[in-house]
Design a protein around this nucleic acid. Structure first.
Lengths: 233, 233
DNA sequence: CGCCAGTTTGACCAAGATCAACGCAAGTGG
DNA sequence: CCACTTGCGTTGATCTTGGTCAAACTGGCG
């Protein structure tokens, strides 16, 4: 089982039941977790350090203890694209068994658990219930990618920025004060915009009272309805 | 196993080994296929017919016998987004167990096999090797979505069109003469462009001899190198 | 033949990119 | 402790890509 797997998991693999029904492994889960902890080794990375590079052998995966990670790719002419951000509790790096197709980098200082792929596979063979977790994880990844496809394909700059803020709020489960660990450049490359456009849109939102920006890495949502109205799918 | 699953499968589930190694179920596969055939029922849809709608209960999935299907979504203000095209041999509609988040429509006339989800789940519980197929399928979906993210986020119109043509060629496994079942409008909504831009780019490619367009639904690749150079990631 | 749907082309427009300053806070070194 | 640098972030002016609007073309079909 589990020879190759998804790009990453925007959710709490092994520590929390999947959001949608199914009631997985209520009993076994903790045991698995303990087993996993012993398989993993703690690593830390400084800001902008490369956790793995495009082209590396994909022989391990990671779970974030603290910090934020970006999954990204540099095009030949220097254009950069960020496929995903992962936060504390998320898993990432479960990509195909061959080479990495994206790089993973630390957005700020990051601490992760590193898991050997082969060892994990053995564990999963013993406890097939874990396979179900993996599938759920990949499903969520896929659903999220689909949402982003719509965003990048059909949304205007203000809609993208509004979506981004609401997504941040939802992931961190806060209603008002957002911590924004990534730079404006990261946000731009995530939303398919330029840094200037991101700034301008944020400034416009600040001007009309939708948000407040006490400092660049902290944004407060003052008028959530306005944000939601901006997205309006 | 398999309570909820990916958006669709751009590949040959159950009929062909996965492209990347792993050598799955060499022996059992045919038996499964036979079992499945008996679970499924043949359905046909006319051009533009809705196979399922956004919001429908996701209690079945499909494998395409012939024709092309688009997975799409209409935004409130009429903007349309096509998440994916599926062709003969592909599976789709394995989305989450709740409601459909996208609609599926027939691009031309389409024949599909329709499979009941619950029955399939039972089959998979009996033959866990099938779960591995599912995971591979989702992995491919995910990898493809990631590629499209890059396309929509960071590529110019000519790059998008060139990618599209090369993707078509690769999927159909032809080197020169492409059948293009979908309309220019479909292509535009798939690439995040307008129909006019798609036309203009195709016309430009025709002008400089990269492609020939004997009729709107047939495109010939005359200079594959030029196409590949256009994409150049 | 004329209509219809889809495609193509052209003229013009605007959202967002690019280029260029400027601001501002956190180091750094004299 | 204070100039000076450095790295972001913000703002403005201008340009370009691709969108919008409108008209012409094409091939099938009653």
């Amino acid at each position: 089982m589990f020879k190759q797997f998804g790009i990453g998991a925007p959710s709490e693999f092994f520590t929390q039941p999947p959001s949608v029904g199914v009631s997985i492994a209520r009993s076994g889960q903790l045991d698995e977790l303990v087993a996993l902890e012993q398989l993993g080794s703690r690593r830390s990375f400084a800001r902008d350090a490369e956790i793995y590079a495009e082209g590396d052998r994909a022989d391990c995966w990671f779970k974030i203890v603290s910090g934020t990670v970006r999954i990204c790719k540099l095009m030949a002419d220097g254009r950069r694209h960020i496929a995903e951000f992962f936060h504390a509790g998320d898993c990432f790096g479960l990509d195909g068994e061959g080479e990495r197709t994206f790089a993973a980098e630390a957005v700020g200082d990051v601490i992760v658990m590193r898991f050997n792929r082969a060892a994990t596979e053995r564990l999963i063979d013993e406890r097939p219930v874990l396979a179900r977790c993996m599938c759920n994880m990949m499903l969520r990844n896929l659903a999220h990618a689909q949402t982003r496809l719509l965003l990048l394909g059909r949304m205007t700059a203000p809609e993208r920025v509004a979506s981004f803020l609401l997504e941040l709020a939802e992931r961190r489960d806060v209603r008002r004060v957002l911590e924004v660990p990534m730079s404006r450049n990261d946000i731009a490359d995530y939303l398919g915009l330029t840094i200037e456009t991101v700034c301008r849109v944020l400034s416009a939102m600040k001007r009309d009272g939708t948000i407040a920006i006490p400092n660049p890495h902290r944004i407060e949502i003052c008028d959530r309805d306005a944000l939601e109205a901006t997205v309006e799918m």
